[in-house]
């Protein structure tokens, strides 16, 4: 078992311990929100970061995931794990289908068409009366929360498992041969294709994986907020976080979104409590713009630049400028 899996197991155990030791539900609400951001950031980055196709509509998949969950809960009263899997599958297929339609476009047009897609999804959901339409739907929190003290603790652990799965997949993808192909696509798509990289197929793999994890992130959402309407599911704030977290953390490596999600998520939870939630949004916007303009490589990029400079300044006196 590698270091990564040891770490993942450690995180999981720590989560369990946390649910056992802490009673204050507030921490689990906060933890849930941060983990939701982490899953979405990781999902977004699988397409947006690894291949360079900026996707503004991916949070739409999150909302669809939430609504699939509502619909199946109402129709068949399926247990949560099935809802998560079903949402993952449906959104994965949607990622594949929309990817097939749009991923042949150049990056800019792709980004715009994803904006369009999110609005179309929102319109469809708003008109879907079975799940409440524009007025929304109430979800009764299930009584049974296994051996956890409350249902939100259960949800927190569910999100932790999905988060570990998402990060593990992103890591696997980026270190695999496929990941090398994705990086080649981001750097230069035509050159990649001419070097034997099946660009469309790899982009579709990315888009599908993005959809799967976005959907999974959305599936427990109705149970978390207990009332879901198009406004809350398609909230701009959720969408912005999914993009801001990877960009702030660093889009080129699998752990960039994780770092971004933890830092931004924690900051948000703290400012929401201590100051106000609107100011909190403003901070996200300003920090996002700051990073995009001044440090496009995100935090990971900053650290890499810094260590490279230190290496260079150490090497410089002896090498005397090798070029």
């Amino acid at each position: 078992m590698g270091r990564f899996w040891l770490g993942a197991t450690g995180v999981f155990m720590a989560g369990l311990l946390f649910t056992g030791a802490v009673d204050n539900e507030f921490y689990f609400f906060s933890g849930y929100v941060i983990l939701q951001g982490l899953i979405m950031a990781t999902a977004w980055n699988i397409l947006g970061g690894f291949t360079g196709y900026v996707n503004f509509g991916s949070a739409g998949f999150f909302a669809v995931g939430a609504y699939i969950s509502v619909a199946l809960h109402q129709a068949l009263a399926l247990p949560l794990p099935f809802l998560i899997l079903a949402s993952g599958m449906v959104c994965g297929l949607m990622g594949l289908a929309t990817g097939y339609l749009t991923l042949r476009l150049k990056g800019i047009y792709f980004a715009i068409s994803t904006l369009a897609m999110a609005i179309v999804l929102e319109t469809v959901i708003t008109n879907w009366e079975y799940v409440g339409g524009a007025s929304g739907a109430y979800i009764l929190t299930p009584k049974d929360s296994l051996f956890f003290a409350s249902y939100v603790e259960l949800l927190f652990m569910v999100m932790l498992i999905i988060a570990i799965a998402a990060v593990a997949f992103a890591r696997y993808l980026s270190t695999s041969r496929t990941g090398k192909g994705l990086t080649a696509i981001r750097d230069d798509e035509l050159a990649a294709e001419c070097m034997g990289v099946p660009t469309l197929r790899l982009k579709l793999v990315s888009a599908t994986a993005m959809g799967v994890f976005m959907g999974m992130a959305g599936a427990p959402f109705p149970f978390f907020i207990t009332f879901v309407d198009p406004l809350s599911a398609f909230s701009l704030f959720i969408a912005v976080n999914a993009i801001a977290m990877p960009l702030i953390g660093g889009t080129k490596v699998w752990y960039g979104p994780v770092i971004g999600a933890l830092i931004l998520g924690l900051t948000q939870e703290i400012t929401t409590v201590t100051i106000s939630s609107e100011l909190n949004l403003l901070i996200v916007g300003v920090v996002l713009i700051g990073f995009i303009t001044l440090a496009p490589g995100g935090i990971v990029g900053l650290v890499q630049d810094f260590s490279r400079k230190r290496l260079r300044s150490k090497a410089a006196p002896s090498a005397g400028g090798d070029r």
Binding site: R177, K180, G181, T183, A184, R186, D187, D188, V197
Partner: peptide, 17 residues
């Protein structure tokens, strides 16, 4: 070139695909 990669990594792409 694949700009985010080193020289040798650039060669690994065609070798692996």
């Amino acid at each position: 070139p694949f700009r985010s990669m080193t020289v040798i990594e650039n060669l690994l792409v065609p070798l692996e695909f």
